[in-house]
Design a protein around this nucleic acid. Structure first.
Lengths: 176, 176
DNA sequence: TGGCGCATGTAAAGCGTTACATGATTGT
DNA sequence: ACAATCATGTAACGCTTTACATGCGCCA
């Protein structure tokens, strides 16, 4: 369960409101942790209740906008959590289930679905590569910058791998 | 939500009992879908209730062992599901959250954790490569066999990628 | 025959998803 | 003023996880 810590990290990088966090989760944060705005608001309320973050009303803004910032207790909790043993993530890969099932049922519609998925991953790859070449090409980077670049590179590698899987699966379904 | 379809696929490949399914989910099925025995038993009960599988009492076995097999309705449901549009899987990668948080908090304990994780993924990789060289090295393979080989290869690539991430992260945390 | 361990099951709490609802400002 | 829209919140349901409980053969 790392949504609260993903939020703490995001707020430590830059304070912002719930809706802005939701937007950030659709962008840079989104390729390694997805969350809906409902999850975010619920978790922000809990984090504030726990005294890890503090939200203040933003004047002359639409709606009841509140900007959250991380408190010292939040930074401490984040450091504590980072030091926790990292368990291997549970894998739930629906595409693999579907491909293995296709080995039994053999359905033609699957080909078109795989093509759609392929397009999706190609678009994501292009997006990430753009971010990487724009933001992470300096010769010398701080440790923090190198870690963020590593995370982005992992996203790039992931998308490339999904592309390979889709292409191979399409080839297998086509070749006979 | 593909646990029921993972179970249907497993039972289509080979009928077996709940506890044996749990064991298979710790092995070959486990690298793309994880499930606890409680999830499995509950889902088996639902699938039987829905008339997709049928369980029969196994005599002279420990406990109240029941062996399940897939019914025609189950095979039909599997085929229907395979043809469903494949949505990109939601990504929730705790390691990436932790690495990005480490860019802020900088904790030494993380290094040891990464080493543990590295060992885990190396062991998995070795296991999968062993399966691949033992079961999928024939010159000519049926379409079904090629699909299963593709799924296994995806598992191998995944573990290799996690190994690379761990190594890179350790290098970054070590280099200064 | 009585513990040991395997096979199955029950219960509770938390996270994730979806649909829907309310507050408050902008622009016409 | 008032519709549109942004920002936040509520509610219900299903899946996942964890701890605990029961049924039943095996074997000392």
């Amino acid at each position: 369960m790392s949504l609260p810590h993903a939020l703490l990290t995001a707020l430590a990088e830059r304070p912002c409101s719930g809706s802005e966090l939701a937007a950030r989760f659709d962008r840079s944060l989104g390729y390694f942790w997805q969350a809906t705005h409902q999850q975010i608001y619920r978790e922000l309320a809990r984090l504030e209740e726990a005294g890890l973050i503090k939200g203040t009303r933003v004047e002359r803004a639409r709606g009841r906008k509140r900007e959250y910032r991380i408190l010292p207790a939040g930074t401490a909790e984040l450091a504590r959590w980072v030091a926790e043993p990292q368990q291997p993530d549970a894998i739930r890969d629906e595409l693999m289930v579907r491909l293995r099932a296709a080995a039994i049922t053999d359905v033609d519609t699957l080909r078109a679905n795989l093509q759609n998925l392929l397009d999706h991953h190609r678009a994501k790859l292009e997006l990430y590569v753009g971010i990487a070449t724009r933001d992470f090409t300096k010769e010398t980077m701080s440790r923090a910058a190198r870690l963020r670049a590593l995370v982005l590179q992992a996203g790039i590698d992931f998308e490339q791998q999904r592309i390979n899987i889709c292409q191979d699966a399409i080839a297998i379904l086509t070749e006979d």
